[in-house]
Amino acid sequence: MASATSPTLRQRRLGVELRKLRERAGLSTSAAASLLGVNQSRISNIEAGRYAVSADRVRAMTRMYSCSDERLIDALATMTGGRTRGWWDEYRDLLPTGLLDLAELEHHAVGLRAAAVIHIPGLLQTLDHARAVFQEGVPSLRPYEVEHRLSHRMKRQAILHRDDPAPYSATIHEAALRMQFGGAATARAQLRHLVEMSEQDNVTVRVIPFGVATFPGSGESADYVFGPVPQLDTVQLDTAHGCQFIEAEAKLANYRELMDRVEGSALKPAESRDFIHNIARTT
């Protein structure tokens, strides 16, 4: 079991949002501690995500911080308590922490958007395509490490098939559709799977063809994860060093605009489906 000093992304985010509210109220940690009747270290540990806090305590803190946004208060209250154990905890000693945080983030999301240039988004990859991608990683992964990542990725995809799934929208550049990870047969199967997924009511797939000269965010793949309120949204970027999470409000606003503009550069969903069909026929 992970120690109390190793909070999850969700626990850290709760602490960050409480710190923002405290600072906007013009209160120091010592002043907040005095008002709550606790020592200063308790406030610091709560804000660092190292200390479990109850929903009642969160509501008391938000009142003390003069927060009147009831939707935000309710959303923060749902993030309380100790570590929520999910299926991703099976991988806690097997995979980088960022991958576990991503799975937890997606599990609680009320909506997701993805923009991808070179790779098919992970939630839409087939097993064989994903295996080929992982096998090309640098530094090379050992066979058992590849299998751990594969099973983790396939389990993440369950959020698209559960009862009342969150809406998922992916904008994919033609370059990603033309890549042949695993060879032509694997690539064809991946494209057919992409078409099948795009026919689900909760999944929207858009394609940016090579004919679109430029589009915002060229070269960067990103996932935008919607929280219950905009303040709790998160952007996840894939980097050579693992997952990077962005939570600052100004940056979130920039990524919302970027996603809107990327989608505006793409073909409509029905045209995108036909486009993928055509590539699959010639692959």
Rank of each mutant, 00 (worst) to 15 (best):
Y144V: 14
S151N: 14
L123R: 05
T126Y: 11
R153K: 13
V146P: 05
H129S: 09
E145W: 12
E145K: 03
S151D: 15
H152N: 04
A132H: 01
Q135S: 11
V138A: 12
Q135H: 02
S140H: 12
P121T: 04
H152E: 07
G137T: 15
P121V: 05
V133F: 11
E136G: 14
R142L: 15
R149K: 13
H148Q: 09
R131G: 04
L124C: 08
T126K: 00
H148C: 10
E145G: 05
L141T: 01
P121C: 09
H148R: 01
T126M: 02
D128Q: 14
V146E: 09
R131F: 00
R131V: 04
H129E: 10
S140Q: 13
S151F: 09
V146N: 13
L141E: 02
P139E: 11
Q125I: 00
S140Y: 05
H152A: 08
V133S: 08
R153I: 06
P121Y: 07
Q125E: 03
E147F: 10
T126A: 04
P139V: 10
L150S: 10
P143E: 13
H148G: 00
E136Y: 03
L150D: 07
P121R: 01
H152K: 00
Q125T: 01
A130W: 03
E147I: 06
T126F: 12
A132P: 00
H152V: 00
P121N: 08
F134T: 05
A130R: 06
E136M: 13
Y144H: 15
T126L: 05
P121D: 03
R131L: 07
E147L: 07
D128R: 12
H152P: 00
E147T: 08
F134K: 01
L124D: 06
Y144D: 15
A132Y: 01
G122S: 04
V146H: 08
R149H: 12
R149N: 10
L150R: 01
R149S: 11
P139D: 06
I120F: 11
A132L: 00
P139R: 05
R153C: 04
G122A: 07
Q135L: 06
L124Y: 01
R142H: 13
L141C: 10
H129T: 01
P121L: 05
E145D: 12
S140P: 14
R131P: 01
R153Y: 09
R131E: 14
V146M: 02
R153D: 10
V138N: 06
G137C: 12
